[in-house]
Simulated assay, not measured.
Amino acid sequence: MELANLKELRNDMKSKGENFDIFEFKYKGKGYFVIVEVFEQDNKPKYALAKLIFLRIEDIKDKFETWANSNSFLENDVKKIKDFFGIEYSKNGRLFQTLYKALGAIIPITFDNSRKDERLKKDTLLNYVIVSDPKDPNKKYLFDVRRNGGKRSPFNDEKTKLKNPEIYSVFEDRPEVSFFYSKDPNDEKDVATILSKFSAR
Rank of each mutant, 00 (worst) to 15 (best):
D133Q: 09
T160C: 12
V38L: 10
L74A: 03
R147E: 15
S132A: 13
R56W: 00
L126D: 08
N156Y: 01
K163Q: 14
F64M: 05
K163N: 11
N19W: 12
R152E: 06
D83A: 11
K16D: 04
I194E: 04
N164R: 10
T66W: 01
Y47K: 15
L162T: 03
P134N: 03
T124Q: 01
E24Y: 02
S15Y: 00
K183Y: 03
D77L: 04
N113V: 14
K121F: 10
D133I: 07
V177M: 09
Y100F: 14
N76M: 08
L3M: 09
L6V: 09
K46Y: 09
L120D: 15
I87M: 07
F39T: 03
L142W: 06
E18M: 14
D59W: 00
Y141W: 12
K82C: 12
F25Q: 10
I35L: 09
A50I: 06
K63L: 13
I53Y: 08
F179H: 06
F20A: 04
R174A: 10
D184Y: 09
K91R: 15
K183M: 06
K51S: 13
L95T: 08
R147W: 07
Y32L: 07
G17S: 13
Y27M: 02
R56P: 00
E37P: 04
N76D: 04
K140W: 00
F25G: 00
P134A: 08
K122F: 04
Y141F: 14
V145W: 06
E188H: 02
N156L: 02
K28L: 15
T193P: 03
D157V: 00
N164F: 15
T160Q: 08
Q97N: 12
N76W: 03
K14L: 14
E37A: 06
N148S: 05
I106F: 01
Y181E: 02
F171P: 07
K122W: 01
I53M: 03
F25T: 10
V38R: 12
L6Y: 09
F155Q: 12
F96R: 07
P45C: 06
N92S: 13
N113T: 05
T98N: 14
K116E: 12
R115V: 02
V38A: 13
M1C: 08
I60D: 10
I130V: 15
D21A: 09
E188I: 05
F155K: 09
V36Y: 05
N186S: 14
K183L: 08
K61G: 15
P154D: 06
E58N: 13
L9I: 11
L52K: 12
L142P: 03
E37V: 02
M1Q: 06
D133Y: 04
E8G: 00
R56E: 11
A50W: 01
K140P: 01
K82N: 11
I106S: 10
Y32K: 03
E40P: 00
F85K: 08
F111Q: 03
I106N: 02
V145K: 08
Y27F: 15
K63T: 13
